[in-house]
Design a binder for these strands. Sequence first.
RNA 1: GGAAGCGUGGCUGAGCGGUUGAAAGCACCUGAUUCGAAAUCAGGCAUAGGGGCAACCUUAUCGGAGGUUCGAAUCCUCCCGCUUCCGCCA
Length: 423
Amino acid sequence: MLDIKYIREHAELIKENLKNRGVVLDLDNLLTLDRDRRAHMAQIEELRAQRNQGSKGKPSEEDIAKMRQVGDQIATLEKELATIEIDYNKLLKAVPNLTHPETPIGGEEDFKVLATEGKIPKFNFEPKDHEAILLDLGLIDFERGTKVAGNKFFFSKGDLVRLNQALIQYGIDIVTKHGYELMETPDLAKDEILEGIGFNPRGPETQIYSIDNNDLSLIGTAEITIGGYHANEILDLSKGPKKYVALSHCFRTEAGAYGRTSKGMYRVHQFVKLEMFVFCKPEESEVMHQEILTIEREIASGLGFPYRVIDVASQDLGGPAYRKFDIEAWMVMKGDSASSTGGYGEITSASNCTDFQARRLNIRYRKENGDTEFVHTLNGTAINYSSRWPIAIIENFQQKNGSIKIPKVLQKYCGFKEIKSRT
RNA sequence: GGAAGCGUGGCUGAGCGGUUGAAAGCACCUGAUUCGAAAUCAGGCAUAGGGGCAACCUUAUCGGAGGUUCGAAUCCUCCCGCUUCCGCCA
């Protein structure tokens, strides 16, 4: 959520930003509602002042009659105000965050490549996608996953499970080394927390599973629970930013997702993710954004598959992000023609959300002069399993004989150097 | 899941329909006293919104949301949380 004062005073800039982000929204209507809202508030306050004055001490019968009238007027105005505020809040929450000046303007394809690392593998055999490899090795069961929980759920088995655990151990060791406090979070959160972070828990376009007869939803990422962790708090950031790394399950309905990019574990309803989250002062957020990206690269580079870093374009940012860096790993499954051996697929996303989330979650910090100010929040993927990180490993390090070489850094965690068929 | 009790400012804690944004104490800040400190004395000490160049004015907030009333921290309803007891259970 943006500050209405800022919107009021920078209407043209906001309109430009809406255009750049491809968001259609009637800003003039919001400004009209804002004026109307404040006018109503002024009137109500005036009448309340009258009533407060009139109701002091023991009023006479005459005063009571008069105040009863004032009360009726207040009630009428309050009803009008409530109606105005429904539309006002809906519109205000729909205004996306401002955009970093260096963010490329444009759609999904208009990202800017900031860095490329590693060599694209050259296979002296026909490489397979992870689904085929894992099925051949007997380490994944989609059919029974579907039987038990529905399409896009699956069972992981044997050494794949050990690989998953190793990935998390490896990720935890690297991130905590950088001073991030390790947490495990609830896998469910209240709708108000989801909304504060910028998710839409219910409604036709939601990506979130919600629980019936309850205000709880399954979280799509630990970003939700860690953001909520400090909701309605005034933080002490005098000793530096608050940095967390949190492990949770992630649940996504992925409504409408289909086609080639949904193959195997790329787009699933449930996975596990280790997520970094930072609360910091506004002047620190750009540096923290770089730090998160650096840690993500350290994790990816250690595993040894090729990847690139992109500066995500304006229309692909989502509402809360001011700027977003994605790491995309090379994956065989991403080959989009018979001639190509692969393509890039997103494995991390690091967002600087400035004060957009903090404003709604009411998270501030105490400045040295005693004032409070909204913090900036940032989040970024450290690593995950049952989804894209194992894909990158399995597809890049597959061998001609159908086995998978395990990156050296993982071997001490999982206790084996390769995954091979047991038959 | 059932029953009872409770949720008031940074903390302790009064108030249970009418100058109560809220007594008192602790903590904290300023000043007096002191060579300095302690003690003592005087004063200050919540947050957010709206208006005003400003001094200032005004509204809201006593777990949350509604309701009753001319008027609610105080009464009613629902929700959330905490404590204790019972039940159930990894």
